[in-house]
Amino acid sequence: DIEITTNGEEDAKRVIKELQKRNLEYHIEVHGNQWVIKVR
């Protein structure tokens, strides 16, 4: 598993777009303004 910590929603959406392009499965956890994306 890979864990990507982003700085808020805009940053997270940019990362998610890339993950979707590669058809990767991911899970999002929001901790305040930090979005942690866990990639399987």
Rank of each mutant, 00 (worst) to 15 (best):
N23R: 10
R14I: 10
G32A: 05
I2K: 05
T6K: 03
G32N: 08
L24E: 04
G8Y: 07
I4N: 01
I37C: 02
D11Q: 13
K13Y: 13
Q34Y: 12
I37A: 00
A12V: 06
I16Y: 02
V39F: 08
D11T: 09
V15W: 11
I16S: 02
N33I: 06
K21W: 07
Q20N: 10
E29G: 02
K21F: 10
L19H: 01
Y26A: 03
H31N: 11
R22N: 11
Q34V: 14
R14H: 07
E25Y: 11
R22V: 06
R22G: 06
Q20S: 07
I4P: 01
H27V: 14
N7M: 13
K21V: 08
A12H: 03
H27Q: 12
R40T: 14
G8A: 07
A12L: 13
D11S: 10
Y26P: 02
R40S: 12
E9L: 11
V15K: 03
N33F: 08
E18Y: 13
R40E: 07
I28V: 13
L19I: 05
G8H: 09
R14D: 06
V36H: 05
E18T: 05
K17V: 11
I4A: 01
D1Y: 15
L19M: 04
H27S: 15
G8F: 08
G32V: 03
I16R: 01
E9N: 04
K21S: 10
K17Y: 11
E29D: 04
T6W: 03
D11I: 08
K13S: 08
I28E: 01
L19G: 00
I37M: 02
H27L: 11
A12R: 03
E9R: 09
I2E: 05
Y26Q: 00
V36R: 05
T6G: 14
K13G: 06
H31E: 05
L24K: 06
Q34M: 14
H27N: 10
E18A: 10
K38C: 07
V30E: 04
I2L: 13
L19S: 01
E9H: 07
T6S: 05
N7L: 13
G8V: 07
A12Q: 02
R22M: 15
I28Y: 05
T5L: 13
I2V: 09
G32Y: 03
E25S: 13
K38L: 11
Y26E: 00
E3G: 03
E3V: 15
I28A: 03
I16N: 01
T5W: 15
Q20K: 11
L24H: 03
E25W: 11
N33V: 07
D11W: 11
E18H: 07
W35D: 00
E3K: 10
G32H: 05
G32K: 04
Y26F: 13
V36I: 14
R40C: 13
